[in-house]
């Protein structure tokens, strides 16, 4: 079972796209891949105020991810805590993972020639820190949640 989740409190989200840049700079990504995404529905009037809701998407870290078995190099892995990540040493950049993912979440890093995706910044998580997008969220709208079985 997955241990973690990134949750967006859309009441606090101001759609500033800070999370996307926090993520990119932490992973030293060039122009091209963006690993998380803020989006919103078209505006609709609610009691005289045009409103919309922001949503956040990165990787769903599926319980049974299709990207893991399809990887010919065993680079795509799912950890015991549920985090799905790419071992950059092993990845050969074939992008089979992207093709098989229903949301095309893994992306090609044009500089390294390898696949890259949201891994909840597992190096930070292992140090007891939060993912970059959550740590630096402009309005503290993103939360890194530890799931508990009840």
């Amino acid at each position: 079972m997955n241990t973690y989740l990134i949750y967006l409190n859309s009441k606090r989200c101001i759609g500033c796209h800070g999370c996307e840049v926090h993520c990119k700079t932490n992973k030293s990504l060039p122009v091209g891949p963006i690993l998380c995404e803020i989006s919103h529905e078209p505006l609709r009037s609610a009691r005289g105020v045009p409103k919309t809701v922001f949503s956040f998407r990165s990787c769903y870290h599926c319980e049974d991810p299709q990207c893991v078995p399809v990887c010919p190099a065993n680079a795509m892995q799912k950890r015991a805590d549920g985090i799905v990540h790419v071992d950059q040493e092993k990845c050969i950049g074939c992008m089979a993972c992207q093709n098989v993912c229903p949301w095309s979440i893994p992306q090609l890093n044009p500089v390294s020639g390898k696949a890259i995706k949201c891994d909840y910044c597992l190096d930070r998580v292992d140090l007891g820190l939060k993912p970059a997008c959550v740590s630096k969220c402009t309005t503290h709208a993103l939360k890194f949640v530890r799931l508990v079985e009840v």
Binding site: C16, G18, E20, H22, K24, T25, S135, K136, T138, H140
Partner: peptide
């Protein structure tokens, strides 16, 4: 810790 897109 909060910072905007420009800051990063």
């Amino acid at each position: 810790g909060a910072l905007c897109a420009k800051g990063s």
